[in-house]
Design a binder for these strands. Structure first.
Length: 467
DNA sequence: CTGGCCTTAGA
DNA sequence: CTAAGGCCA
């Protein structure tokens, strides 16, 4: 009898923690609601997780078993469940973020004390942190070189879901709690389905078609040709081996060399995910500290009004506002737009990236410490492989380039629906009269980009030790 | 030790 | 044209 403690691996198929190739012990699956984790979570993300949990429980029940649901501190609950079932071992899939590592180490100590074997299984990434290093043996802090080695490495094949023979005949009457039970209000955003079936449908349909346009069109938010698998990868409702394997088959079936390259480009995004996982594992302090050290501290502004306008999507920069409103409405934002709004917060509003990271953590279903922190620090020029501080996104140019017909902007900013793309993409230099006649309800720009850009460069030159 | 390459661009 | 810095050969 082995307890498998589910955390961010809410699936049965392609789960290296649940399915073991050796041994015939039966598995008792467990999930623990940990208040410390819930304290750091937002309602959209918890709503998705609860749906994933219900699906996971259904899958176990279909196989004549059940998912045990408990509430409390895992360092008490996990050993208690192990003792109750007289388990020989407890397994879980490794989570590489700092908070999880501290928690898991504490659980490990408790289990050692009562003499229960435990195994932390490498499952969430293809290549575990520390396994891809520079030729000098150090963790990479530049993506390009990491990526080359990541692609060259052999990838493991997916494993099957366990059969009912592998699962313990248990039943549990503790229900999956509601959002309200956990102290959250119902989110305004519509939350997508979190089942493994839903993840597979997304993956399959993405790999039939959009993946072949991915390289060319992924930066155009109106196209919606990204995979939208991020939330499923965050909660492990689909396995990373299954994702890679399916893209590899799309690679084999690609109709042209360009289509093959496009599949490779998508796989490169999977490599980014593993790059940031190993950055966080090697540098757990980046959650709160700049990765890149400047001589002096960066003089971020304390500007609550500007921060609120950014959160509300009321900055008067159309592409920024569209992104921030998509975040509220869908608990999701297109990746290109994430970079634009992050650049705007840090380089135009001069607000600390941590404020933006906190807002994303609260609002995004797919929030992942490693990826979000990596992305924010990249945009803020404080991270690994960071955007140089003097290379600052121009929000108008970005909008014009990646949303030329303002299709994405109009979808999320109804005040601009009757305005033409020309005035939308030159909103910052249009006259007051032009703005009022084109879109009377849409705000004027809250800052002057070219002014703020110069000030941002000065702010970073000071931080670098300039006069 | 050092030159060259490469960055999810902008002015 | 600008221009920082990790990594490699």
């Amino acid at each position: 009898m082995r307890i498998h403690w589910h955390r961010r691996d809410l699936r049965l198929a392609d789960n290296l923690g649940v399915t073991r190739t050796e041994g015939t012990e039966s598995v008792v699956p467990l999930f623990v609601f940990d208040q410390e984790v819930l304290d750091h979570a937002g309602a959209p993300r918890v709503a998705f997780m609860l749906d994933a949990l219900q699906s996971l429980r259904d899958a176990y029940r279909e196989r004549g078993s059940d998912l045990l649901i408990r509430h409390g501190d895992p360092r008490d609950v996990v050993p208690a469940v192990a003792e109750k079932f007289d388990a020989e071992a407890v397994s879980w899939c490794r989570d590489y973020s700092g908070l999880a590592r501290e928690r898991d180490a504490a659980v490990r100590r408790e289990l050692d004390e009562i003499g229960v074997a435990r195994e932390a299984v490498h499952d969430a990434v293809h290549h575990e942190p520390g396994s891809i290093t520079t030729n000098a043996g150090d963790p990479y802090s530049v993506f390009t070189y990491f990526s080359k080695k990541w692609h060259d490495r052999e990838k493991r094949e997916p494993v099957d879901a366990p059969s009912s023979d592998d699962l313990a005949d248990v039943a549990d009457d503790e229900p999956v709690p509601s959002l309200g039970d956990l102290g959250f209000e119902e989110p305004d955003a519509v939350i997508p389905s979190a089942s493994t079936e839903a993840a597979r449908e997304r993956l399959e349909s993405f790999c039939e078609d959009a993946i072949y346009r991915y390289e060319e069109r992924r930066d155009y938010p109106a196209d919606e040709c990204t995979s939208r698998l991020s939330s499923h990868l965050k909660f492990g409702t689909i396995g990373i081996r299954e994702v890679y394997d399916t893209t590899d088959r799309a690679h084999a079936d690609a109709p042209s060399e360009g289509a093959r390259e496009s599949v490779f480009e998508f796989q490169d995004q999977l490599a980014w995910r593993e790059f940031y996982t190993q950055v966080l594992e090697a540098n757990p302090q980046v959650v709160t500290e700049n990765f890149k050290e400047y001589d002096n501290s960066i003089a971020w502004r304390d500007d609550p009004e500007a921060l609120q306008a950014w959160k509300d999507g009321e900055t008067g920069y159309p592409i920024v506002d569209a992104g921030m409103r998509q975040l509220r409405e869908e608990a999701f934002m297109h990746n290109r737009v994430r970079m634009i709004v992050a650049s705007f917060l840090t380089k135009d509003l001069h607000i600390d990236w941590r404020e933006g990271y906190d807002w994303f953590r609260e609002k995004l279903v797919d929030h992942d410490t490693a990826n979000d922190n990596g992305g924010w620090q990249w945009a803020a020029s404080t991270g690994t492989d960071a955007q140089p501080y003097f290379r600052i996104f121009n929000p108008m140019t970005q909008g014009e380039r990646y949303d030329p017909d303002a299709e994405y902007i109009k979808k999320y900013v109804p005040e601009l629906r009757d305005a033409g793309p020309e005035i939308i993409h030159s909103w910052h230099e249009a006259s007051l009269t032009q703005r009022r006649s084109a879109a009377p309800e849409y705000p004027d720009p809250i800052v002057d980009h070219s002014e703020r850009r110069e000030e941002a460069i000065t702010m970073f030159e000071m931080a670098r030790g300039g006069e």
